[in-house]
Design a protein around this nucleic acid. Sequence first.
DNA 1: CTGAAAGCGCTAACAC
DNA 2: GTGTTAGCGCTTTCAG
Lengths: 335, 335
Amino acid sequence: MVKITDVARRAGVSPSTVSYALSGKRPISDETRRRVQAAVRELGYRAHVRARGGTGAGARVLALSVPLRSGVHVPVVTQFAVSVVTAARAHGHDVLLLTRDEGEEDVGRVAEAGLADALVVMDVQLQDPRLPLLRSSPLPSVLIGVPAEPDGLTCVDLDFGAAGELCVEHLARLGHRTVALVGSPPEVYVRRTAFARRLVRGFTAAADRHRLSSAVHPCGADRGAARALAERLLREQPAPTGVVVHNEPLLDPLTDAFEQLGLRIPADLSLVAVCPAPVAASARVPLTSVTVPAAELGTRAVHLLVQKLSGAPVPQVTLLPPRLTERASTGPRPV
Amino acid sequence: MVKITDVARRAGVSPSTVSYALSGKRPISDETRRRVQAAVRELGYRAHVRARGGTGAGARVLALSVPLRSGVHVPVVTQFAVSVVTAARAHGHDVLLLTRDEGEEDVGRVAEAGLADALVVMDVQLQDPRLPLLRSSPLPSVLIGVPAEPDGLTCVDLDFGAAGELCVEHLARLGHRTVALVGSPPEVYVRRTAFARRLVRGFTAAADRHRLSSAVHPCGADRGAARALAERLLREQPAPTGVVVHNEPLLDPLTDAFEQLGLRIPADLSLVAVCPAPVAASARVPLTSVTVPAAELGTRAVHLLVQKLSGAPVPQVTLLPPRLTERASTGPRPV
DNA sequence: CTGAAAGCGCTAACAC
DNA sequence: GTGTTAGCGCTTTCAG
């Protein structure tokens, strides 16, 4: 293993000079810097992180807390994770993946042991057990999601309330009078997951404002549940003609179920999805959707974290405005 | 931040005694150990990894190299990754996620900088650029996948050759005489990805042995490609009646395409998938499949790594035998 | 069975 | 602009 003293000897300078030449934390003559850089290259030197004791910059590792609780859809989470990793690498950081159900233990360990020097937190609940640790820890953190009480935290998220409203407004504009929201599995609401509840609130508020009759149905993600729910929706009086689906793994099964029940989309029934754009675009029936900008949220979170690490001030809450993309699954209310 | 000297003071012993009491690397009296443990608990002490300079056990961090090259199906990769993380946590390790296209840079950095003390390597190509680093590095590693020349490495994988044969044998037993393999996108073969090519070889060998006429078709993963391929297969003389699909994102589109072309599955056409069990089971038409045991492979890789870390000998190559599960997509050759 | 002391590789005061 | 030196928090000799 090649160490800083090896580089120093080879470049004919002292170890501290090598350190400074590399960090740029004090002026170094061009001549010296060149020699140091040459030595570094020739020996293939890389600073050993675990040696930067106490003082000094961190390990350039950032931890990502993604509790894989029941009901979270892994492919969507993965999109966030990949964008976080990519953005982190662009800033020279590596990413430590923390996935245990209750994120508290993970977050505590990482903070105490100095495993990472910053933290991205996902799947935030309104009252999240990780929040006290985040507030008290010296480790800078950014949440993807907004808890009930964001004071003293940094959060970024899609404006799910506005997203819920946008879906309803789209359907209202098409003349629909009865709408339904098919949401996440019940346990997600029981856990008080922030984004799920905000979407519901926005959906309901907009429906009331437009005087639409509306209902909300949490739903599990298997084909059986999809079929049962589809049948139930069609039995209602009046039956909804516009359905908003905020549940990725259910999109395909629910589309299938409606079609098997003899409905054509969008002639008989309009469907609006709330999901990442690729999911909506590659569905069997391309779905009109409000995009969950997974990649952008991950990237933003990392940017905010880098800002915080460099001491720059950051806004407490960043909400991205929702955007609706029309595809083939919505149309005028059937006559 | 609470350090080892704080614990020592509180327990009325020296720092080294605390260190030994915690590591168990030398005998400690019960009385002393108890006092140390009490102090640790009361103060909430955790060893700071970055201080274990040079000597000493590692940071208990294990790196996972998953180059996200084009054509790799992220949901499948994610299943591996999650199982690696879970297994690693069960052994007290955290996981650093490395996802850059060319894994060399990542692997080098991690090894040099001491960011991790072991390495799991995925998406292995027959000639993988990461191999030289793995062979020369002191960092223990385990590959999920088997390169052309596994000497000096530790590998674990599904026996994809046998998996290819198993698919063909199942179809042959059902009386099919003409079979096709729909594989990964062309770039995957061009990269000489190990498992993809082994499956092809097994498929072809078994088809020859059973005197079936066979063909192999790499295919991209979008609906357009699926449709085009389905049409092409049906135009062939003779047209295949048994199709093996080794391409997860293509399963649904290809099923749709065949049905839209008027074929019933399995009455007119039998389909065998090579994919993780959940994917096959939850498809619209439940698919007969050879299971890619993603979770087990991840877990095994971590076990092997832990063995290596503890100095135990491990086998060079571990191949898991394939298992075929019959579901609704295969039946006798149409008459 | 326990303590004192050296040293891990690196950074940052403190010198010149 | 550069070198010397004193740590960082921990582990592990070396001594009792």
